[in-house]
Design a protein around this nucleic acid. Structure first.
Length: 112
DNA sequence: AAGTTGACCCCGA
DNA sequence: TTCGGGGCCAACT
């Protein structure tokens, strides 16, 4: 069988499992996949999220500081923030307020 | 095959 | 506090 479980698909799976109103970080996903230092690759996978057949809530994935680094990739500035606010997440200056409260760690919530 | 890129993360000055 | 450099992994050219 062809390895459907590409790194991208694994990332998409985790992101797709993010509950509404929660966010996670690239590093957390990378660790969940086993490659703790592959945080950069996780972001790269997000770039290819549009290739996935399922909708990938990439707006729920932010950097370690809770900053919306990839908002520009959503087709326009403010789109990512609006999506987060729509889920009850406050975003100020491209940063998620109370990021710790909204943080969702796959290693913690999900069982490997 | 080799070099470059990327929506990152960590440490030092 | 802000700024700079290094490291890590996978995909792209």
């Amino acid at each position: 069988m062809k390895k459907e479980s590409d790194f991208f698909e694994q990332v998409w799976q985790v992101v797709a499992l993010i509950p509404r109103g929660r966010v996670t970080s690239y590093g957390a996903i990378a660790r969940y996949l086993g490659s703790a230092s592959a945080s950069r690759t996780v972001g790269y996978a997000m770039n290819a999220s549009h290739a996935s057949t399922v909708r990938i809530p990439a707006h729920r994935v932010v950097n370690r500081n809770g900053m919306l680094t990839g908002k520009h990739w959503f087709g326009g500035p403010g789109v990512m923030q609006q999506l987060l606010e729509s889920e009850g997440i406050s975003v100020v200056e491209d940063k998620i307020t109370e990021f710790e409260k909204h943080f969702w760690d796959p290693n913690k919530e999900l069982t490997i």
